[in-house]
Design a protein around this nucleic acid. Structure first.
Length: 171
DNA sequence: GCCAACGTTGGC
DNA sequence: GCCAACGTTGGC
């Protein structure tokens, strides 16, 4: 990631938090599960895609805002927001043989996968389905809405984030 | 449950 | 390093 390399070289930090979207299957872990978690916080275990991992590892910062998205749901929808409360660290589920996310190529000595911790911020007044999001001009270029997009951690523009939060606040 | 669109693996 | 085969994601 060029921007991240630039930051490493210069020692500069992004002055403003960035915005993200993270997918979860509600049958596995829903926003309600997050609300019930201690301190409304969870480690985002189970990301097993290199591009998604690299976003977490190289670009996510403490305080970054995250849209929580329910995939494989009826309907699939954005359901709320969270905030990054711990930067990327090794995903211990990757070397746990009992975990569904076990990867034999990962170990505590040489972890292959990373995770961040996120804390629930807001649960929207109502879920925002994909068809509803597609109606918004501001969101017409949103990655989530692109055909074939299956990245489980993806960047969101500030404008997209603000629009969705505003929609979620409406009754 | 179907299947398009991806991502990964492994033979060569 | 190519690319076919396979596995996965995720909307519908």
């Amino acid at each position: 990631m060029a921007q991240a390399n630039q930051r490493k070289k210069t020692g500069l930090r992004m002055q403003t938090a960035k915005h993200w979207l993270m997918k979860t299957e509600p049958d596995v872990f829903s926003i309600d599960d997050l609300a019930r978690s201690p301190k409304h916080t969870t480690s985002w275990i189970g990301v097993r895609n290199y591009q998604a991992r690299n976003f977490m590892r190289d670009d996510m910062r403490l305080g970054d805002k995250v849209l929580i998205y329910h995939s494989n749901a009826k309907p699939s929808c954005v359901v709320g927001t969270a905030v990054v409360v711990k930067a990327s660290h090794p995903d211990h589920s990757s070397w746990d043989p009992k975990s569904p996310y076990f990867d034999p190529k990962s170990s505590p000595e040489n972890p292959r996968w990373q995770m961040v911790d996120v804390q629930l911020e807001t649960v929207f007044n109502r879920p925002l389905s994909l068809p509803e999001l597609r109606e918004e001009t501001v969101l017409e270029n949103m990655l989530l809405l692109k055909k074939g997009m299956r990245l489980s951690v993806q960047p969101v523009t500030k404008q997209e984030f603000s629009k969705i939060v505003q929609m979620g606040k409406r009754g």
